[in-house]
Design a protein around this nucleic acid. Structure first.
Length: 820
DNA sequence: ATCTCCCGCCATATG
DNA sequence: CATATGGCGGGAGAT
């Protein structure tokens, strides 16, 4: 009975076959109804057989999409044969997997275009769907509810829903992210992890502050369903109360991904947070179980949407199921002020929608006046805990809105296509010449998702080029810095949103054609990427580390055509580069004297941010890019730290000895750092490839004293590309703690520069792993002695000490994320 | 045994 | 009141 080998996947077959049928523009005529699930057709039988033979269907499901029929056929045959020999396959009737929500969801989604045109509004009739898909109604609700949470559908009336497709996704995600930030999910996550970690220490029942507070961070319990302007719940139906459940749960779940830095969320944590939030439930075991069940349901749907994918995180506690966000990157939350500006400047539709969205969201969540970060319960708790650690923090009451400055990045999300780059690479490897778009497309849609989107694929958002620059994962957000004035060391904990903001502001950054870089990198390092991918596929735990030198011809890597805007950017960069040295000096000075850290809850965005100069006027940058193009704001001098969003974001610090402090950076200090932005820009621009200005950067860093003279910030990604198996971040040094630390330091320094004062290269040390990292390394503040040694306090002090000594000690904790 | 998560009972909401 | 929705958790297949 044991299935012999796991080969092809069923779902894959299903998908591929169905895809073609699907008519993008018209309501899917559900042509040949040969649902794989249907055991009665010969075809289906075969499929089933195959599926039976392949245990891990799901995992391959997505990847498989790429492969083609020919391959599939072969595999199928092989499978079949083996199977026949093995035993009578009768056994598997509808195999449980064939009934999985994920598969069902795929089928469901296949019926509708991702981006339905206005003209083709599709309505969804539940009765029809259930009938056609051969499912119980109940299941459809599961799917629809999640889709509703993303505003991909909305209910019209009984049995009736409207299909919106992914048009609203960007806004939705942005809104969700914002809310997530407001809810301080990051802190909550950390809290949970911390508790987890300490959960043994707590002999006595004195878990008051920590436990009680953290667990019950429910003060702001009911978070209503997040709506979007045009997509409210109809019929006042669901809108009523009942804010429980799947819909909201789904939104919260997504929020967790959007706010956490390595965008990986474990089920456990998610469940805890979701539970804790609702009500201060006693850690009821059954409740937890139920929550997990629901999360699986949601996760299945989200997976079908390709927004997340399942992975496993291996921590010291063992390996736990988790999910990784693979959807579009969501940019910083917007500030109202800016929004208005933008709205004026940008194309009406986009800006408007965004704006309205903001308002909407505001109205929806003003609840309890928790708007203010400072007042936020979780924040308070955080503060408490921090205090426990003997740290003082001043909370800055400023609300983000007020702080808001002049910039705003309007492209909040970029098409998932970008995210799929790795996949693309893989595809190419496989000999497929499909373009990203193509592969992205589900149905035979001629126009990829990207097209409809305001943002062209080539403009992957700044921050993390997911596949290509996994570096983000290992980015070291929290950095310990010596406080210049007080002499106290602080861990800089940048709030993601803030970070984003900063990033946005950075002129260099903006200019920087990250997209280009990304693309280039991919192209150039194709082989590399491919290798990795392949490896990955084979076995997740194996980290391939073959530093091939792919970058060689990076210059000409430009994708098909360098956009004029990109060119512009380059030019600009070049110019800026000239001043680099000067600036460096300047920076140096700045660092030495004007650097001031304000221990506060968040980073204060600069008031006058600069945009990069506009990147030309290529059409491609539609509304989304508008913000970037406001020359009005550009003022190099005011540049802000060019950091990769990922870098800035807080790492989910699982617990541990040190509670990260949020430090607010003074505008001045930030302003002083424009120079670095350039370097950053350059470096990042270089993309994963070589970092032209790296030398400059190194020079600067050394000069500043951030790194030892001998140390060099790796400019070449290749170097970074050290085998994962080893300490990902290190540049293979000998070994031992010391070395490790050193390596750590190096990396961190870069980050530090970015975060702290902004001189750092946006793309920190080039990403080590282009593809989805098999293993993710996170940095944590930990005692050198290891997990067992000492309490957080000791750790803190330790860290502080080291820092003060000029040595950055940021122990790292290795966290592995493996795909299934 | 653990991880996933399907199934469908049954409380509620809707019309 | 009949249905439509959709919590919820038992328990079984997958690993």
């Amino acid at each position: 009975l044991k299935t012999p080998l796991k080969q092809a996947a069923t779902s894959q077959l299903v998908l591929t076959e169905r895809q073609p049928d699907c008519h993008p523009l018209t309501t899917p005529p559900k042509p040949k109804e040969t649902p794989p699930a249907d055991p009665w057709t010969p075809t289906s039988n075969l499929k089933m057989l195959i599926s039976a033979a392949s245990p891990e269907i799901r995992s391959r499901e997505q990847k498989k999409q790429l492969s083609h029929s020919s391959t599939e056929v072969l595999q199928a045959k092989a499978c079949l044969q083996e199977h026949l020999l093995g035993d009578e396959y009768e056994k598997s009737q509808p195999s449980r997997k064939e009934k999985s929500l994920g598969l069902l969801c795929h089928k469901f989604l296949a019926r509708y275009p991702d981006y339905p045109s206005a003209a083709q509004k599709s309505y969804i009739c539940l009765d029809e769907v259930t009938e056609e898909l051969h499912v119980e109604r109940r299941r459809i609700y599961d799917i629809v509810n999640v889709l509703e949470s993303l505003h991909m559908v909305s209910r019209l009336a009984r049995n009736r829903y409207i299909w919106h497709g992914r048009h609203n996704l960007p806004q939705t995600l942005q809104a969700l992210k914002k809310v997530g930030e407001e809810n301080k999910y990051i802190q909550q996550i950390q809290m949970i992890k911390k508790k987890e970690y300490e959960h043994e220490f707590d002999p006595d029942g004195e878990r008051n502050e920590e436990m009680a507070s953290s667990v019950g961070s429910n003060e702001q319990s009911e978070m209503p369903f997040v709506e979007l302007p045009g997509v409210e719940f109809r019929a006042a139906s669901v809108n009523g109360r009942k804010y429980k459940s799947l819909r909201v749960m789904s939104q919260k779940f997504v929020m967790l991904f959007l706010v956490s830095t390595p965008q990986i969320v474990s089920l456990e944590v998610a469940a805890k947070i979701l539970i804790g939030e609702d009500q201060l439930e006693d850690l009821d075991k059954s409740k937890f179980k139920t929550k997990i069940r629901r999360l699986y349901d949601i996760a299945n749907v989200l997976s079908s949407l390709k927004l997340i994918k399942k992975v496993h995180v291996t921590e010291e506690r063992g390996r736990k199921p988790a999910f990784k966000w693979t959807g579009p990157e969501v940019l910083p939350n917007i500030q109202d002020t800016k929004l208005e500006v933008i709205s004026t400047t940008c194309s009406p539709p986009v800006s408007e929608s965004i704006l309205s969205k903001e308002h909407c969201s505001k109205n929806l969540f003003p609840s309890k006046g928790k708007q203010n970060f400072t007042r936020h319960s979780s924040l308070i708790k955080l503060v408490k805990s921090i205090e426990n650690d003997r740290r003082k923090i001043q909370s800055a009451p400023t609300s983000p809105v007020k702080i808001s400055t002049s910039t705003y990045q309007s492209l909040p999300v970029f098409p998932s296509t970008i995210t799929q780059l790795p996949a693309i690479a893989k595809l190419q490897l496989e000999g497929q010449s499909k373009t990203a778009e193509e592969m992205q497309m589900k149905c035979a849609l001629p126009s990829p998702e990207a097209v409809p989107k305001p943002e062209p694929p080539q403009q992957p958002a700044l921050s993390q080029p997911q596949g290509v620059c996994p570096a983000s994962h290992s980015s070291v957000s929290p950095v310990i810095l010596p406080h210049p004035h007080s002499g106290v060391s602080y861990a800089i904990y940048l709030h993601p949103s803030q970070a984003h903001t900063v990033t946005t502001y950075s002129p260099g950054f903006m200019l920087q054609p990250l997209p280009c870089a990304t693309v280039t990198g991919i192209k150039s390092s194709n082989s590399k990427v491919l290798n990795k991918i392949t490896t990955e596929e084979g076995d997740n735990q194996i980290a391939m580390a073959e530093p091939t030198k792919p970058l060689a011809g990076e210059e000409r890597l430009e994708m098909k055509s360098e956009t004029s805007s990109q060119r512009c950017l380059k030019r600009a960069q070049a110019l800026q580069e000239n001043n680099l040295i000067k600036r460096h000096r300047h920076d140096e000075e700045s660092l030495g004297t004007s650097l001031t850290f304000f221990p506060s809850g968040y980073l204060i965005p600069l008031t006058h941010c600069t945009h990069g100069n506009k990147a030309d006027s290529s059409n491609k940058e539609k509304a989304g890019m508008c913000s970037l193009q406001h020359p009005t704001y550009s003022s190099p001098v005011t540049g802000v730290v060019p950091m990769t969003a990922s870098e800035l974001k807080t790492v989910n610090i699982p617990a541990f000895h040190i509670t990260p402090l949020n430090i607010m950076l003074s505008p001045n200090s930030i302003a002083a750092a424009p120079v670095l932005s350039n370097s950053c820009l350059n470096s990042s621009n270089a993309s994963s490839a070589q970092n032209p200005s790296s030398s400059a950067l190194n020079f600067m860093l050394q000069h500043i004293g951030l790194i030892p003279a001998g140390v060099q910030v790796p400019a070449n990604p290749v170097l970074q590309h050290v085998p994962v198996s080893s300490q990902a971040e290190n540049i293979s040094h000998s070994s031992g703690n010391t070395n490790m630390q050193e390596g750590k330091v190096r990396t961190n320094i870069v980050h530090l520069g970015c975060g702290g004062n902004f001189l750092s290269p946006p793309q920190p040390p080039p990403p080590k792993e282009p593809q989805e990292p098999q293993a993710v390394t996170e940095n944590f503040f930990r005692t050198p002695g290891g997990p067992n040694s000492g309490s957080s306090l000791s750790a803190n002090s330790d860290g502080a000490e080291r820092i003060s000594q000029g040595t950055l000690y940021i122990p790292q904790r290795k966290l592995e994320v493996s795909e299934d």
